[in-house]
Design a protein around this nucleic acid. Structure first.
Lengths: 330, 330
DNA sequence: CTGTTAGCGCATTCAT
DNA sequence: ATGAATGCGCTAACAG
């Protein structure tokens, strides 16, 4: 048999309402009464039914994290970040993968809300830019926070990171090590981050008085093969850059593979740097130098914003960027 | 305002009971009535409240997947496998990470059941061998299915894979390519799979009349550094094996890194093979040869076993093992 | 500060 | 084959 609030109230010698008040941390409960209830809760190992709370009250103590990302590391990190804050606040997170390109996306999200009585949602890219979803959530007044949205920044609270600054910082780092001929692999053209990272790279070079050579900038698509291809193109001749900066971890790994193919030593013959959006590079390619995007921290901040209502439209968090690994020029 | 079963019943011109019957696919509903209800459900885009169903009925249409694994790829795969079958059956899966070593594990799991009105659980390793959890779930009659348990196989339905056969198959593969001097890196001593994989390796060699050289077998611990260390040990001298078989993906990557350090070409100078428990190797180290454990399929089978009650204690699934990549001996 | 009462949306008896 | 009534466990007015 399930332990209920009624049993708790009997053990504590108070009414169910009072137990409910204690559970919900409401004021106007005598400290002594509160303690008695808490003792009873602990003694019975009572856990309130989420279902009953959702049905009876306004709040379900549940939020959902919506994602559609091919990288398991990325998913793991946003899940971990969101869960961490929900645990603190006694909330449950529903992890919901979706197909951001599917026409049913909106219906699925709305269905999820009705099914589970959600208190709010966290939308991660690319769902954070799904126009119809955003519009409908806004219309219904469903609270939601977006992670790294690319547009309509005023429509909801959001958290993001500064891709331009990050790319600039990494490029600065390479220059400070003596590199002056630095290749760059652009990310997938559909992602806003791609253009921003290119911008940061350019900005740094310009600031250091280094000309941006168009031949040193190659288009990629955020995956391993495109990085490998770019690496082969840049590393095959004698005229090769002393460093290559790829716009994400997978492409940096592709460049690394190309370097190995050409018998080049890393970072002695060529330094390879990349973004690490998911801790993937750090975990599995220790020889790469990466600048880490704090995905977990973003999700944590998003959950905080959603649950604690710590801010409203236009909130913007700047995150620390961490450079790891060695890119020392020989 | 939420769409409820009442509104559906009004639109369909029947009672809420009938709507409920249709939703739950119960018999004894006239085909015509059923259609009317289904039309109303579609028209209103009605989604029954999981909370209300859980509260009113015996079944919550929810299960949980419990895991505690350091590999994001592994987690992604078991989540995906479980979700796939739940989607088919109209169930919701709650993904719950835990600390299998923590003393609160049992309480946390029991709390989760009470909070969410779970219909059952899937336990993945190492929770699938947590004695107290298993005992208590059994005592309470809570349905659960275990993935790859190491002991007490008769106590619950479970799904697993044949690690001995897999290791044997990979070793056979290496031998068939002409390798006769094959190194082996053992996995973490606490995992049952480690001993089994070693057994498969030995069995294959013995069958091929190849002596098992103790110097070619090195202890590892399932992580990158231990593989790297093992690789360095085996690849530093002139007397080195023509192939190295590591017990998982991370260690195989470590061996690969060691090979690069020694200027060895893979697979020409040394072939490197490994288990790929999580698709990690396939995704990020294309030059490795791996034998894949179908984690996603296991989770899918576990969900099926749990929800469809397709079998009981002692169910055992044998899974296809897939060898990918090139290990061709020069 | 505390208790009484009335639902939340649905599945489930029990009737018919 | 269908419907009316009851209650799941909790929160939310409303009293005191």
């Amino acid at each position: 048999m399930r332990t209920t609030i009624k049993q708790v109230s009997a053990v504590a010698g108070v009414s169910v309402t009072t137990v409910s008040r204690v559970l919900n941390k409401e004021p106007y409960v005598k400290a002594d009464t509160r303690r008695k209830v808490e003792a009873a809760v602990a003694a019975l190992n009572f856990r309130p039914s989420t279902a009953a709370r959702a049905l009876a009250g306004q709040r379900a103590h549940q939020i959902a994290l919506i994602y559609n990302n091919p990288s398991p590391y990325y998913i793991y990190n946003i899940q971990a970040g969101a869960r961490a804050h929900c645990l603190e606040r006694g909330f449950r997170v529903i992890f919901q993968e979706c197909d951001a390109a599917a026409p049913e996306l909106l219906e699925d999200v709305l269905g999820l809300i009705e099914e589970t009585h959600l208190d709010g949602l966290i939308l991660s890219p690319p769902v954070s830019d799904a126009r119809d979803v955003i519009a409908e959530l806004t219309r219904r007044g469903v609270p939601f926070v977006r992670i790294a949205p690319g547009r309509d920044l005023s429509v909801s609270p959001f958290v993001h990171m500064d891709d331009i600054a990050a790319a600039e910082q990494m490029t600065d780092h390479l220059v400070s090590l003596g590199h002056r001929d630095i290749g760059f692999v652009i990310g997938h053209p559909d992602h806003v981050a791609s253009a921003q990272r290119l911008k940061g790279y350019r900005r740094s070079l310009r600031r250091h008085g280094i000309a941006v050579d168009p031949d040193r900038v190659v288009q990629g698509s955020f995956d391993f093969p495109s990085g490998q291809k770019a690496g082969r193109a840049m590393l095959s001749g004698a005229d090769r850059p002393s460093a290559i900066f790829a716009s994400n971890d997978d492409m940096a790994a592709g460049v690394l593979a190309a370097a190995h193919e050409h018998g080049l030593s890393v970072p002695d013959d060529v330094a390879i740097a990349g973004f690490d959006d998911s801790d993937l590079a750090r975990a599995v390619w220790p020889s790469l130098t990466t600048i880490r995007q704090p995905v977990r921290e973003l999700a944590h901040a998003a959950a905080k914003l959603l649950i604690d209502k710590g801010g409203h439209t236009g909130q913007l968090l700047r995150h620390e960027l961490i450079i790891r690994g060695s890119t020392q020029k020989r």
